[in-house]
Protein backbone atom coordinates (compact mmCIF):
# COMPACT_ATOMS: atom_id res chain seq x y z
CA UNK A 1 0.00 0.00 0.00
CA UNK A 2 1.43 3.32 -0.94
CA UNK A 3 1.73 6.19 1.46
CA UNK A 4 -0.74 8.55 -0.13
CA UNK A 5 -3.32 5.84 -0.28
CA UNK A 6 -3.04 5.37 3.43
CA UNK A 7 -3.47 9.07 3.97
CA UNK A 8 -6.39 9.09 1.63
CA UNK A 9 -8.03 6.29 3.53
CA UNK A 10 -7.53 8.02 6.83
CA UNK A 11 -8.99 11.24 5.52
CA UNK A 12 -11.96 9.43 4.21
CA UNK A 13 -12.62 7.83 7.56
CA UNK A 14 -12.34 11.13 9.32
CA UNK A 15 -15.00 12.62 7.17
CA UNK A 16 -17.65 10.01 7.65
CA UNK A 17 -19.64 10.59 10.82
CA UNK A 18 -21.11 7.10 11.27
CA UNK A 19 -17.62 5.81 10.83
CA UNK A 20 -16.38 8.15 13.52
CA UNK A 21 -19.08 7.02 15.91
CA UNK A 22 -18.26 3.43 15.16
CA UNK A 23 -14.59 4.03 15.82
CA UNK A 24 -15.10 5.73 19.13
CA UNK A 25 -17.48 3.02 20.28
CA UNK A 26 -15.03 0.43 19.13
CA UNK A 27 -12.16 2.03 21.02
CA UNK A 28 -14.27 2.47 24.10
CA UNK A 29 -15.40 -1.14 24.00
CA UNK A 30 -11.83 -2.33 23.58
CA UNK A 31 -10.66 -0.29 26.53
CA UNK A 32 -13.40 -1.57 28.82
CA UNK A 33 -12.80 -5.12 27.65
CA UNK A 34 -9.09 -4.81 28.31
CA UNK A 35 -9.71 -3.53 31.81
CA UNK A 36 -11.75 -6.60 32.63
CA UNK A 37 -9.09 -8.84 31.14
CA UNK A 38 -6.35 -7.15 33.09
CA UNK A 39 -8.24 -7.30 36.34
CA UNK A 40 -7.40 -10.86 37.45
CA UNK A 41 -3.79 -10.27 36.53
CA UNK A 42 -3.48 -7.06 38.43
CA UNK A 43 -5.24 -8.74 41.30
CA UNK A 44 -2.68 -11.54 41.33
CA UNK A 45 0.22 -9.13 40.96
CA UNK A 46 -1.06 -7.04 43.82
CA UNK A 47 -1.55 -10.06 46.00
CA UNK A 48 1.88 -11.42 45.20
CA UNK A 49 3.41 -8.12 46.33
CA UNK A 50 1.29 -7.74 49.42
CA UNK A 51 3.53 -9.31 52.06
CA UNK A 52 0.66 -11.58 52.93
CA UNK A 53 -1.77 -8.89 54.01
CA UNK A 54 -4.32 -9.54 51.31
CA UNK A 55 -5.87 -12.82 50.31
CA UNK A 56 -7.92 -14.57 47.66
CA UNK A 57 -11.04 -13.35 49.35
CA UNK A 58 -10.32 -9.70 48.77
CA UNK A 59 -10.83 -7.83 45.56
CA UNK A 60 -8.10 -5.37 46.28
CA UNK A 61 -5.95 -4.17 43.39
CA UNK A 62 -3.38 -2.06 45.16
CA UNK A 63 -1.22 -3.63 47.84
CA UNK A 64 -0.73 -1.72 51.07
CA UNK A 65 2.99 -2.29 50.99
CA UNK A 66 5.11 -3.51 48.15
CA UNK A 67 7.09 -6.50 49.14
CA UNK A 68 9.03 -8.85 46.93
CA UNK A 69 9.64 -11.52 49.53
CA UNK A 70 7.06 -13.84 47.99
CA UNK A 71 8.96 -13.81 44.72
CA UNK A 72 12.20 -14.39 46.50
CA UNK A 73 10.73 -17.42 48.18
CA UNK A 74 9.19 -18.76 45.00
CA UNK A 75 12.38 -18.37 43.03
CA UNK A 76 14.43 -20.08 45.71
CA UNK A 77 12.10 -23.09 45.67
CA UNK A 78 14.18 -25.82 44.06
CA UNK A 79 11.13 -27.51 42.53
CA UNK A 80 10.14 -24.26 40.89
CA UNK A 81 13.59 -23.87 39.44
CA UNK A 82 13.91 -27.44 38.18
CA UNK A 83 10.31 -27.35 36.98
CA UNK A 84 10.99 -24.18 35.10
CA UNK A 85 14.03 -25.65 33.38
CA UNK A 86 12.21 -28.87 32.53
CA UNK A 87 9.29 -26.97 31.06
CA UNK A 88 11.51 -24.72 28.99
CA UNK A 89 13.32 -27.77 27.63
CA UNK A 90 10.02 -29.46 26.94
CA UNK A 91 8.62 -26.52 25.03
CA UNK A 92 11.93 -26.00 23.26
CA UNK A 93 11.97 -29.55 21.94
CA UNK A 94 8.25 -29.93 21.41
CA UNK A 95 7.47 -26.87 19.33
CA UNK A 96 9.90 -27.48 16.43
CA UNK A 97 9.27 -31.22 16.41
CA UNK A 98 5.51 -30.94 16.57
CA UNK A 99 5.44 -28.24 13.91
CA UNK A 100 7.61 -30.33 11.63
CA UNK A 101 5.37 -33.34 12.15
CA UNK A 102 2.21 -31.30 11.64
CA UNK A 103 3.47 -29.74 8.43
CA UNK A 104 4.68 -33.05 7.03
CA UNK A 105 1.34 -34.63 7.79
CA UNK A 106 -0.80 -31.73 6.70
CA UNK A 107 0.92 -31.06 3.41
CA UNK A 108 0.33 -34.43 1.74
CA UNK A 109 -3.22 -34.42 3.06
CA UNK A 110 -3.84 -31.00 1.54
CA UNK A 111 -3.12 -32.33 -1.95
CA UNK A 112 -6.12 -33.54 -3.86
CA UNK A 113 -3.90 -35.96 -5.76
CA UNK A 114 -2.52 -37.67 -2.68
CA UNK A 115 -3.84 -41.24 -2.81
CA UNK A 116 -6.54 -42.28 -0.33
CA UNK A 117 -6.55 -38.81 1.07
CA UNK A 118 -10.02 -39.17 2.52
CA UNK A 119 -9.14 -42.42 4.17
CA UNK A 120 -5.98 -41.05 5.73
CA UNK A 121 -7.79 -37.97 7.02
CA UNK A 122 -10.41 -40.21 8.57
CA UNK A 123 -7.67 -42.42 9.95
CA UNK A 124 -6.37 -39.42 11.86
CA UNK A 125 -9.64 -37.74 12.81
CA UNK A 126 -10.92 -41.05 14.17
CA UNK A 127 -8.26 -40.93 16.88
CA UNK A 128 -9.68 -37.65 18.16
CA UNK A 129 -12.79 -39.49 19.29
CA UNK A 130 -11.78 -43.02 20.00
CA UNK A 131 -8.88 -43.72 22.23
CA UNK A 132 -7.98 -46.65 24.37
CA UNK A 133 -7.71 -44.53 27.47
CA UNK A 134 -5.12 -44.19 30.13
CA UNK A 135 -4.13 -47.77 30.90
CA UNK A 136 -3.07 -48.95 27.44
CA UNK A 137 -1.41 -45.60 26.74
CA UNK A 138 0.58 -45.94 29.91
CA UNK A 139 1.55 -49.47 28.92
CA UNK A 140 2.77 -48.23 25.55
CA UNK A 141 4.90 -45.55 27.15
CA UNK A 142 6.25 -47.98 29.70
CA UNK A 143 6.83 -50.57 26.98
CA UNK A 144 8.88 -48.10 25.00
CA UNK A 145 10.90 -47.37 28.11
CA UNK A 146 9.90 -43.74 28.12
CA UNK A 147 8.84 -43.40 31.77
CA UNK A 148 10.65 -40.56 33.49
CA UNK A 149 11.85 -39.30 30.13
CA UNK A 150 10.96 -36.05 28.45
CA UNK A 151 9.94 -38.03 25.36
CA UNK A 152 6.98 -39.41 27.26
CA UNK A 153 5.67 -35.84 27.26
CA UNK A 154 6.41 -35.10 23.62
CA UNK A 155 5.91 -38.23 21.55
CA UNK A 156 2.31 -39.06 22.53
CA UNK A 157 1.22 -35.60 21.39
CA UNK A 158 3.51 -35.35 18.40
CA UNK A 159 0.75 -34.79 15.86
CA UNK A 160 -2.29 -33.13 17.40
CA UNK A 161 -5.08 -33.96 14.97
CA UNK A 162 -6.96 -30.72 15.54
CA UNK A 163 -3.99 -28.49 14.80
CA UNK A 164 -2.99 -30.64 11.87
CA UNK A 165 -6.43 -30.22 10.28
CA UNK A 166 -6.25 -26.45 10.76
CA UNK A 167 -2.89 -26.28 9.03
CA UNK A 168 -4.03 -28.65 6.30
CA UNK A 169 -7.03 -26.47 5.63
CA UNK A 170 -4.86 -23.44 5.36
CA UNK A 171 -2.65 -25.22 2.86
CA UNK A 172 -5.74 -26.18 0.92
CA UNK A 173 -6.86 -22.59 0.70
CA UNK A 174 -3.60 -21.55 -0.94
CA UNK A 175 -3.69 -20.95 -4.62
CA UNK A 176 -2.25 -23.88 -6.63
CA UNK A 177 -0.66 -21.53 -9.16
CA UNK A 178 2.44 -20.92 -7.08
CA UNK A 179 3.09 -24.59 -6.73
CA UNK A 180 2.56 -25.32 -10.35
CA UNK A 181 4.97 -22.69 -11.54
CA UNK A 182 7.59 -24.08 -9.19
CA UNK A 183 6.97 -27.58 -10.39
CA UNK A 184 7.56 -26.46 -13.94
CA UNK A 185 10.91 -25.19 -12.74
CA UNK A 186 11.63 -28.75 -11.60
CA UNK A 187 11.18 -28.39 -7.85
CA UNK A 188 10.12 -31.46 -5.87
CA UNK A 189 7.50 -31.54 -3.10
CA UNK A 190 10.03 -30.96 -0.32
CA UNK A 191 11.43 -27.91 -2.01
CA UNK A 192 8.00 -26.54 -2.79
CA UNK A 193 6.84 -27.04 0.78
CA UNK A 194 9.84 -25.39 2.33
CA UNK A 195 10.58 -22.67 -0.21
CA UNK A 196 7.11 -21.63 -1.22
CA UNK A 197 4.36 -22.94 0.99
CA UNK A 198 5.88 -22.37 4.42
CA UNK A 199 6.87 -18.73 3.92
CA UNK A 200 3.38 -17.74 2.84
CA UNK A 201 1.88 -19.80 5.66
CA UNK A 202 3.73 -17.84 8.32
CA UNK A 203 0.60 -16.59 10.14
CA UNK A 204 -0.91 -20.04 10.57
CA UNK A 205 2.42 -21.63 11.41
CA UNK A 206 2.99 -18.92 14.00
CA UNK A 207 -0.48 -19.44 15.45
CA UNK A 208 -0.22 -23.19 15.70
CA UNK A 209 3.27 -22.84 17.16
CA UNK A 210 1.81 -20.58 19.79
CA UNK A 211 -0.91 -23.12 20.54
CA UNK A 212 1.68 -25.86 20.79
CA UNK A 213 3.98 -23.83 22.99
CA UNK A 214 1.16 -22.80 25.32
CA UNK A 215 -0.25 -26.31 25.35
CA UNK A 216 3.07 -27.81 26.37
CA UNK A 217 3.75 -25.04 28.82
CA UNK A 218 0.44 -25.60 30.57
CA UNK A 219 0.35 -29.39 30.39
CA UNK A 220 0.51 -31.20 33.70
CA UNK A 221 -1.50 -34.39 33.60
CA UNK A 222 0.87 -36.35 31.36
CA UNK A 223 3.82 -35.29 33.43
CA UNK A 224 2.09 -36.26 36.64
CA UNK A 225 1.56 -39.74 35.26
CA UNK A 226 4.70 -40.44 33.29
CA UNK A 227 7.28 -38.59 35.37
CA UNK A 228 7.88 -40.09 38.75
CA UNK A 229 11.15 -38.43 39.71
CA UNK A 230 10.64 -35.13 41.48
CA UNK A 231 13.63 -33.54 39.78
CA UNK A 232 12.18 -34.16 36.32
CA UNK A 233 8.74 -32.78 37.03
CA UNK A 234 7.45 -29.88 34.95
CA UNK A 235 6.51 -26.44 36.20
CA UNK A 236 2.73 -26.79 36.06
CA UNK A 237 2.75 -29.81 38.34
CA UNK A 238 4.71 -27.83 40.89
CA UNK A 239 2.40 -24.87 40.38
CA UNK A 240 -0.74 -26.92 40.89
CA UNK A 241 0.66 -28.41 44.03
CA UNK A 242 1.30 -24.99 45.50
CA UNK A 243 -1.89 -23.32 44.32
CA UNK A 244 -4.25 -26.12 45.25
CA UNK A 245 -2.64 -26.60 48.64
CA UNK A 246 -5.29 -26.41 51.29
CA UNK A 247 -8.14 -25.70 48.89
CA UNK A 248 -11.33 -27.66 48.65
CA UNK A 249 -9.96 -29.87 45.90
CA UNK A 250 -7.19 -31.24 48.05
CA UNK A 251 -9.38 -31.75 51.09
CA UNK A 252 -9.86 -35.48 50.96
CA UNK A 253 -6.16 -36.12 51.26
CA UNK A 254 -5.42 -33.59 53.88
CA UNK A 255 -7.67 -35.23 56.39
CA UNK A 256 -5.40 -36.55 59.03
CA UNK A 257 -2.29 -34.65 58.17
CA UNK A 258 -3.67 -31.24 57.56
CA UNK A 259 -3.04 -30.19 61.14
CA UNK A 260 0.71 -30.27 60.65
CA UNK A 261 0.85 -29.09 57.09
CA UNK A 262 1.96 -25.61 56.49
CA UNK A 263 -0.21 -24.10 53.85
CA UNK A 264 1.48 -21.61 51.56
CA UNK A 265 0.06 -18.17 52.17
CA UNK A 266 -1.94 -16.61 49.36
CA UNK A 267 0.81 -14.19 48.38
CA UNK A 268 3.13 -17.13 47.70
CA UNK A 269 0.43 -18.77 45.64
CA UNK A 270 -0.08 -15.61 43.64
CA UNK A 271 3.64 -15.13 43.09
CA UNK A 272 3.93 -18.74 41.95
CA UNK A 273 1.18 -18.20 39.39
CA UNK A 274 2.89 -15.07 38.10
CA UNK A 275 6.28 -16.74 37.79
CA UNK A 276 4.76 -19.65 35.94
CA UNK A 277 2.65 -17.55 33.61
CA UNK A 278 4.57 -14.48 32.59
CA UNK A 279 7.23 -16.24 30.47
CA UNK A 280 4.67 -17.84 28.20
CA UNK A 281 2.76 -14.59 27.84
CA UNK A 282 5.83 -13.05 26.29
CA UNK A 283 5.59 -15.38 23.31
CA UNK A 284 2.56 -13.72 21.78
CA UNK A 285 4.18 -10.47 20.66
CA UNK A 286 6.64 -12.54 18.63
CA UNK A 287 3.78 -14.38 17.01
CA UNK A 288 1.98 -11.13 16.24
CA UNK A 289 4.90 -10.14 14.06
CA UNK A 290 3.69 -12.63 11.49
CA UNK A 291 0.16 -11.29 11.37
CA UNK A 292 1.06 -8.74 8.77
CA UNK A 293 -1.40 -7.75 6.12
CA UNK A 294 -0.48 -8.51 2.58
CA UNK A 295 2.18 -10.95 3.59
CA UNK A 296 1.13 -13.10 0.70
CA UNK A 297 -0.42 -10.96 -1.88
CA UNK A 298 -2.37 -13.03 -4.31
CA UNK A 299 -1.50 -16.31 -2.74
CA UNK A 300 -4.98 -17.14 -1.60
CA UNK A 301 -7.65 -18.50 -3.83
CA UNK A 302 -9.89 -15.63 -4.82
Amino acid sequence: MSKDMKIKRKNKIKHSIPSLIFDSMNYLFMIIFCVTCLYPFLFLVSMSLSAGTSNFASLRLIPEVIDFSAYRRVLSNEFMVSGFINTVIRVGIAVPLVMLAIVFTAYPLSKKYFPHRGFWTGFIVFTMFFSGGLIPSYLVIRGLGLLDSIWALILPGLIPAYNMIIVRNYFMSLSPDLEESARIDGANDFTILIRIILPISAPIIATVSLWTAVGHWNAWFDSMIYIQKASKQVLQVVLRRIVLEGTQEMMDLNTGMDDMASISPDNIKAATIMVATIPILLVYPFVQKYFVKGIMVGSLKG
Partner: peptide, 15 residues
Protein backbone atom coordinates in the same frame (compact mmCIF):
# COMPACT_ATOMS: atom_id res chain seq x y z
CA UNK B 1 2.59 -39.88 10.67
CA UNK B 2 1.20 -43.33 9.92
CA UNK B 3 3.68 -44.93 12.27
CA UNK B 4 2.95 -42.36 14.93
CA UNK B 5 -0.80 -42.88 14.82
CA UNK B 6 -0.45 -46.65 14.78
CA UNK B 7 1.85 -46.75 17.78
CA UNK B 8 0.43 -44.04 19.97
CA UNK B 9 -3.23 -43.99 18.99
CA UNK B 10 -4.25 -47.26 17.41
CA UNK B 11 -2.14 -49.65 19.46
CA UNK B 12 -3.79 -48.59 22.73
CA UNK B 13 -7.26 -48.58 21.21
CA UNK B 14 -8.02 -52.07 22.47
CA UNK B 15 -8.60 -50.33 25.78
Amino acid sequence: AIIYFLVFKYAPIYG
